[in-house]
Write a protein that binds this DNA or RNA. Structure first.
Lengths: 187, 187
DNA sequence: CCACCGGTGTGATGTAGGTCACCGGATACT
DNA sequence: AGTATCCGGTGACCTACATCACACCGGTGG
């Protein structure tokens, strides 16, 4: 699992053995089981998480109790309630396991220490943040321009595996439609 | 206008006079007038822009010819079609002046050179990218959870000045509703 | 074996918002 | 002045999707 993290980092910045050891020393590995929460709404957000294996949902629950899924975090994803993480305020989102999951945790102080100790990783995080913000913009555009059916078809095309792994109810909460409408789209 | 850029950078990372001079040498200042395009769909995207003054829209036009506004770029904003910029592919978005506008331009090679020459600025861009991606996530959430009316009221609360500066038609294209519905919301 | 529950389909009905068509006031161009 | 173009309001109608209600199936645990 260390190896996987190393390859992930090295897809962006090459690292010597010593550099990787230094980086690794800032992370801690943890395992969670289905239905466990890494982040709960209203609680502090200690870490950002790199997902080694498993699947999680990043979700907001509105006043009416309805769930809205911001993203599914799969293998090789970074996930957290980044607003709450960076500002050290209570979470407005929950991060919950949909499957048994292994992650590397990075606390905020460790994140800052790591960037200071190894500026290369600052480049890595800059790269990830840039990609993340481009993806988010794409999703905004897709919410602005396309119908529920089109978004579902896009999702099928881009993440066919996900559609298998996840109950339709959750896909609906991700796409921004009701369970029932999603069900009727297959026709 | 140099002073404004300097203050903007220094809100995140302090700079010596020499450092700022070095940074500044990578930018070029330009002025555009209302209705001019900094980026056109289908064209290459030479630069990222820091807006000194004025107002622009970042917009996508769909097959039906309808405009969807991803963001309004105001004073102190960074804007571009970042996907096209970073991947050096043709733009899928247009960036057009809504008012006479002054910007600093940063080409992609200059961006890389600047980060290499002055790692502090890497930290600056990381900071901006992080904020940008948090804001985008917030907007996704707002599109998933709230009605047109609520989004309009949020916009009124958060950017009252913008609502004055911009025709309602464009606000509608930003909020993801038709001009007509937005017009009826005031009631 | 049965009760329960998570996941899914489907009908009936309600509604937010889209679309089309038209109008009237304000600039702006010549 | 006169005309076009932008901007915004409003009525009539339509459609995509939400909501509510119910029914079915396949576990899983007492």
């Amino acid at each position: 699992m260390e190896q996987q993290l190393r390859e992930h980092l090295e897809q962006v910045v090459p690292l010597t053995d010593e550099e990787f050891a230094l980086a690794l020393s800032h992370f801690s590995g943890r395992r969670f089981r289905k239905h466990q929460f890494l982040i709960q709404e209203g609680h502090p957000v200690p870490c950002a998480y790199y997902v080694v294996s498993g699947l999680l949902k990043l979700v907001h629950t509105d006043e009416a109790g309805k769930q809205h899924i911001l993203s599914f975090a799969m293998e090789d994803w970074w996930e957290s309630d980044f607003r709450a993480y960076h500002t050290q305020t209570p979470a407005s989102l929950a991060l919950e396991c949909l499957e048994d999951t292994a992650v590397f945790c990075l606390t905020l102080p460790d994140y800052h220490r790591l960037c200071a100790a190894l500026p290369k990783l600052e480049r890595f995080f800059l790269h990830k943040a840039t990609l993340g913000s481009m993806a988010a913009q794409q999703r905004i555009l897709s919410l602005l321009t396309t119908s529920a059916r089109q978004r579902y078809e896009q999702l099928l095309a881009q993440h066919p595996a996900l559609v298998q792994r996840v109950p339709k109810t959750l896909l609906a909460a991700y796409l921004g439609v009701s369970r029932e409408t999603l069900s009727r789209l297959s026709a």
